[in-house]
Write a protein that binds this DNA or RNA. Structure first.
Lengths: 173, 173
DNA sequence: CGATATTTGATATGGTCCATAACAATTATC
DNA sequence: GATAATTGTTATGGACCATATCAAATATCG
């Protein structure tokens, strides 16, 4: 729907246009009514997604991994020996856009392209040792800082239910 | 995380790299393992969001309303007499980016900017009659095609629980 | 009052992400 | 062996997001 992206110091805190005060004395125009907006699935879904990505980036600040990069590393680790097309399309990334992404990861020595001997057109993707180490650390950060936060907020059971519902939407909607 | 956006004919169906066949006879490289990815909140959240927006755009094809535009109309209707800054910031839209958006809606005669007499700097936003009519039709389409679909998929109770959890994430994460 | 700061809408601009077309090299198909 | 299809790549354009800056109007404060 809307809402900013980068986080850090998002100067446009949504749903909080009139400063975050606890009802100071000043006149201060009343807050706007969200109305039906707050029950619009797309609206709340987008906002939640931005918040989650924000938090993810903060958690990963030390490793400098974006959600997309993390997903690539995870998928390559789980499916070593696959080529760019396979990894990219599984993640919904278009091949042309995957090139720069891999250039980045490869320049940081996190993964490597290897010319396949079977099909000399394709590049087999593998994690480097450094890539495996970084991914391992990333997983720990995600578990301890990211998922833990969600468990605090919703509780373990609800968190699992949420992910299941989102998966259902992602797959069957 | 990744995943495409526009819908229509998204040529890169995620998590389905090897065509959507029901197990044809051909050799066909085995599907990749998603592994931990399928339980990553951010991943599934982003995918669900894209699917929902996709569906929203299809439902609104006849009215040519994007989720963002719909949210603006909803908010202006609920809060008439507010200026651009207030509407934009409530939605998390940066003022500079809100200008073109309003230009669009205004050129289609869905809403109007009115110079405020109190503060001649600001533009009061109002829905035109056509804007109200379009919004009313939009709401019906959302209810009958969009939300109904979600109810079929999750059930009324789960749908409400989902939105509540997402709101919590959007607000308190 | 009058100088200065702030606010509002707007423009210009750059970055990121997403999508399409086109290409060379390689492989598959007929 | 000619033609078609695939792989990685480049180039390019669009959509969205963010920052700096500006003029006009208003607020603030000496």
């Amino acid at each position: 729907m809307t809402v900013s992206k980068t986080a850090e110091k998002s100067s446009e805190k949504p749903a909080d246009a009139a400063k975050g005060r606890k009802d100071a004395g000043e006149p201060q125009a009343e807050a706007l009514q969200l109305g039906e907006l707050s029950e619009q699935l797309g609206y709340v879904l987008k906002r939640a997604q931005l918040k989650v990505f924000e938090n993810f980036l903060r958690c990963m600040a030390s490793l400098q991994l974006t959600p997309a990069q993390f997903s690539v590393l995870l998928l390559v680790e789980k499916n070593p020996g696959r080529n760019q097309t396979e990894i990219a399309s599984t993640l919904g990334i278009l091949r042309p856009n995957f090139v720069a992404m891999l250039d980045n990861l490869e320049s940081r020595d996190l993964c490597a392209r290897i010319r396949s001997t079977n099909d000399r057109r394709s590049h087999i993707l593998v994690l480097t040792d450094k890539g495996k180490a970084v991914l391992a650390r990333a997983k720990k950060l995600v578990a301890s800082k990211h998922e833990a936060r969600l468990n605090d907020l919703l509780g373990q059971a609800n968190r699992e239910a949420l992910i299941e519902m989102l998966s259902k939407i992602a797959n069957d909607f």
